[in-house]
Write a protein that binds this DNA or RNA. Structure first.
Lengths: 128, 128
DNA sequence: CAGTATCCTAAACGATACTG
DNA sequence: CAGTATCGTTTAGGATACTG
């Protein structure tokens, strides 16, 4: 993983670095945005519609953040009516490739997780 | 992705569901914990040492949460001195398999991201 | 060793209103 | 259309002290 750490587990310093990066690009809205750009550029309103539940503010914040980290580009088209499109950079495309399996995992396992949580809570009630 | 959605993008309802699941198991500490259990069971203090920067409280909270979602099991060993070990469930192992590439991506791209951020901020200063 | 409990601050987030 | 600005609430999370 590190290129220098040959042991079975990451060295301590790796964790803080990884943690920082995951904090920048690995939050839930960011992964959903990145996955929604996998087929090419999309406009603000398209993303807003596609990512159900995201507020206008959070979508703006997330897009600015991803642009800042070099994950996507923002292009203003001076046509009538004017509009803005977002597109993955090459680095963003590689993130998309690794993020998609995670998103698919989340979808495929949602029922199993709901189930586990219900059981855990029921057991916690009895135990106290 | 959904099994029923054949379009190029996920249906609106998928997003909220995926968002919820990612919020439960996809946060940064959770992914690091899961990855640190990939070679088998580990004890609380081992994880604390391995995941540099995590507070005792956050590690406890994260572990309880992952146990609740059925990602890992918690086992109390009544030996002297007594200790507790954590181990991935089969579902946890599949999460680990999809999370590892993301964590590796984060590590491999940290320099590139730092770079992009620096450039963005420099440009933002000039533009205002 | 492996936690729990409490306090407290900073960040995330939603709602709403306004704009080029 | 694609935002920005402001406000108020909720949540995350660190520090610290204590425990079976």
């Amino acid at each position: 993983m590190t290129g220098t750490n040959t042991g079975p587990h990451p060295a301590p310093t790796d964790s803080s670095r990884i943690h920082a990066i995951l904090g920048m690009v690995g939050d839930k809205w960011s992964l959903l945005v990145v996955c929604n750009l996998r087929h090419g550029p999309r406009r603000f309103t398209e993303l807003k519609r596609a990512i159900d539940g995201v507020s206008q503010r959070m979508l703006t914040v997330t897009l600015r953040n991803l642009e800042r980290q070099g994950i996507l580009t923002r292009t203003i088209h001076q046509v009538m009516p004017p509009h803005v499109s977002y597109e993955l950079t090459p680095m963003g495309a590689t993130l998309c490739a690794t993020a998609l399996p995670m998103v698919e995992w989340a979808f495929e396992n949602s029922a199993r997780i709901d189930d586990a949580r219900t059981k855990y809570d029921a057991r916690a009630l009895k135990t106290g």
